[in-house]
Design a protein around this nucleic acid. Structure first.
Lengths: 151, 151
DNA sequence: GCGGTTGTTTTGACTAATTCAAAACAACTG
DNA sequence: CAGTTGTTTTGAATTAGTCAAAACAACCGC
């Protein structure tokens, strides 16, 4: 499993190894899939890789995603009302817009600078690591469909 | 079911009726419980009221909470990794700190003003209704316990 | 106050999402 | 190339929440 040319540093494999994890076919498939389809759920990913890797199970996917998340390779995101999603955009403090109708997710760069997102006014003794900002809204498609439905 | 004195306007019952819902014993119990114990899960609430109202079921609680949420009487909140919580503080745009260790939840008033919380820089066609800000951190108790555990 | 209508709750079953555990297996080290 | 250790498979179980139909009770109008 070498890169085809010297120009291809085989990023995914390197990233996995750099995280202290062993490089395996299912792990590569999951990471590859996630690069092409961010905000996928475990089930989505399983569906996406099962044709290339028959014999893979959802449990394997869950295990891989847990390992990736623990290693900081992927970020989890729990939209209200739908299963946990995963994405490889990590390290930047970006946020999400969720369509309340079709559950589509879109990335949003940090609202204003980053300070206000990370500094609660009264932390009541808590040590704060990170802030998750989730915007609830309606995507373009659902706006149109909703307009047709109700007046 | 009248208020004992003129001084007691029986707030919970009024709130429920004002929302266009019928006033029932389980609904009063749920609202009462939620006033005393915000950020309770459906299961928590069921456990809290079952002694006073034997014969109540989790399904009843789920139904009541859905009705309340739809009517704007309560607000839902989905902390990552734990079941949906409910609270009666509605209308004010407040946020939450979640302890990643024990899942405790604390209210936080809106970070700075409210404008930055509601205005994504690029909405890519989305209409945004609201922003949920969730701070992840460690509560005081868990900070101490974590300190004992790992140096 | 009483009865009917309509909304609520109960009862019971069911699904989706995720986790746990043990055995089979494969990647990396030396 | 063999051993060690981490990974994946297999299979089952659990948690959180939903759906539907029947029993029931609050509220409106008389």
């Amino acid at each position: 499993m070498q890169a085809a040319a010297g120009m291809e540093p085989d990023l995914p494999a390197r990233a996995i190894r750099a995280a202290g994890l062993k490089v395996t076919a299912p792990r590569l498939a999951v990471l590859e899939m996630l690069r092409g389809a961010p905000h996928s759920s475990a089930e989505d990913i399983f569906a996406g890789i099962r044709s290339a890797l028959p014999g893979t199970s959802t449990q394997a996917v869950y295990g891989i995603l847990s390992a990736f998340a623990a290693a900081g390779l992927v970020r989890r995101f729990d939209p209200p009302g739908s299963p946990t999603r995963f994405e490889c955009r990590v390290g930047d403090n970006h946020h999400h817009i969720v369509c309340v109708r079709c559950r589509a997710v879109r990335d949003v760069d940090c609202v204003v600078g980053q300070a206000p997102c990370l500094q609660p006014s009264d932390d009541s003794g808590f040590v704060v690591f990170a802030a998750e900002v989730t915007f609830n809204g309606l995507c373009k498609t659902c706006q149109e469909q909703a307009a047709h439905t109700e007046v």
